[in-house]
């Protein structure tokens, strides 16, 4: 899976550079998020602007990250959701769980 991680003033930003976040590759994102949390990261921002498809496994990994962040008094925020991805969040009501922003900059301003 093509992931790029950058630190921005205490927030770790993961750029998910994949067209699909699904049962085939989403475990790799889970491993990366766990690695960052284990190494002391509290606040994670996921940029999903390249992702045009997400399935229930991909959503499950994001929920896992959300719960992991919560137990560590941290946070996980999302940005760059394409229309189809947004509709999956709405269908599963996850848009009520996550803080979702248009862009990385907009999300970073919220911390």
């Amino acid at each position: 899976m093509n992931l790029k991680t950058e630190a921005h003033a205490g927030v770790m930003v993961i750029f998910v550079r994949e067209e699909r976040l699904d049962a085939h590759n989403s475990d790799e994102l889970k491993v990366e998020m766990n690695r960052l949390f284990e190494s002391g990261t509290k606040d994670l921002l996921l940029d999903l602007k390249d992702v045009r498809f997400v399935d229930s496994s991909g959503l499950g990994v994001l929920v896992s990250g959300f719960k992991n962040a919560s137990t560590r008094q941290g946070s996980i925020k999302l940005c760059g959701l394409q229309t189809q991805v947004k509709s999956m969040f709405e269908l599963t009501r996850l848009h009520r769980v996550f803080d979702i922003f248009q862009t990385v900059d907009e999300a970073l301003e919220s911390y």
Binding site: D55, S56, L59, G60, V61, V63, S64, F66, K67, T92, R93, L94, R96, V97
Partner: peptide, 8 residues
């Protein structure tokens, strides 16, 4: 929404 599985 906080379940990690069971949405498929």
């Amino acid at each position: 929404p906080l379940n990690e599985q069971g949405r498929g």
